[in-house]
Design a binder for these strands. Structure first.
Lengths: 189, 189
DNA sequence: AAAATTGTACCTAATAGTAGGTACAAAGTA
DNA sequence: TACTTTGTACCTACTATTAGGTACAATTTT
């Protein structure tokens, strides 16, 4: 792993837990055990690093969720099931919430560059679920009156909201319950 | 309005839009047009102010949502409907998201005092919805197999997630769509 | 007068960012 | 082969600014 990606990786962890604004360059320098010169050799500013972190985050989640699961050749209901399983797995013993959701809330209003990168991920996530639901409707697994677009948005909202509640309550069951509701709703085993 | 509540009110707006950490005391002093002595006369620290702001926030929402709506004598399905209407109304032309949700995400992990105050609100909100759903089940308006506790959690999660998406997408329709889904699900007119 | 307010000047620690340099390997040149 | 150049990687020390917070005198209120 190059020094640059190492810095991104460490910063990603810190920003995930503390937020972008609350993460100081000095935190990163200490954790990564590097000097300032090195940092500013690879990144032109804190903002530049922040965007690199989000980009990395988006790219990795895109790979893990959209490419690996939704673009695979398994059955649509199985895709949703696996995605939900992985969501629970990720948030079990992880009290920092959703990396994307946290930044969405922190940065969307005042930083357009951050906002758009995060939006890009949510767009793709919602679209992937929507196509899944469409396929399930086509196969008669779901009521044909189901509005797949709205439903996909709602599913993402449920997940994000469930993660938010679980973080605030410090209780993963809030997320599990919400995911149970999704499974019931869309008749996933 | 006392000077203290005036400072809280102004800080609440700033913290709502920028977040707690990103709001500087100097922002507050400038906006409120007061000096430092005055600020530190009323609050012992920024953290002290922050907690006062959350307390105020919790208390006002408790009044607006739980007392005014859920503790009123109107029909349960009408309570939910009004709550959903007000949610949309609040977030129309308001790009900062959910005051409580924003702070939940920003503060829950690293500040227990903040976390507990916010948790208190979510607990009461969820409980109020749960009792509403129980009443609707009792009246035969909802399937008797409905798990009111889980459903109430899911409803709050949907709302919070919908607000998060609407904020990131800068499009209130994400919240509206999510609320449509809630209304369909619980057969609210 | 006494007590409660409030403004001004200031303190220290921390912030992002810069200046100016070193170490060293790769590439070009004699 | 030996010498020189050049570019990349990195470090330490510094700057300017801002942060939260304090001291205390001046003013208002009771």
């Amino acid at each position: 792993m190059s020094k640059r990606s190492e810095i991104i990786s460490i910063s990603k962890q810190l920003i995930y837990s503390k937020g972008y604004q609350a993460t100081a360059i000095s935190d990163i320098l200490t954790t990564a055990n590097i000097g300032k010169g090195q940092f500013y050799h690879y990144f032109s500013s804190k903002h530049d690093l922040g965007l690199a972190v989000v980009e990395d985050l988006v790219q990795k989640w895109d790979q893990k969720i959209i490419i690996d699961i939704f673009h695979s050749s398994i059955e649509p209901e199985e895709k949703l099931n696996i995605m939900l399983d992985r969501t629970i797995a990720f948030h079990t013993d992880n009290k920092s919430g959703c990396p994307m959701g946290n930044l969405a809330i922190e940065m969307s209003e005042h930083d357009e560059a951050f906002r758009l990168k995060i939006k890009h991920y949510f767009d793709r996530f919602i679209k992937a679920i929507e196509l899944c639901l469409d396929e399930m409707i086509k196969r008669g697994q779901l009521d044909s009156t189901t509005n797949s677009e709205k439903s996909a948005q709602a599913m993402v909202a449920l997940i994000e909201g469930g993660i938010l509640l679980a973080k605030n309550q410090q209780d993963i069951n809030f997320l599990k319950n919400v995911i149970d509701i999704i499974r019931e709703q869309y008749k996933l085993t």
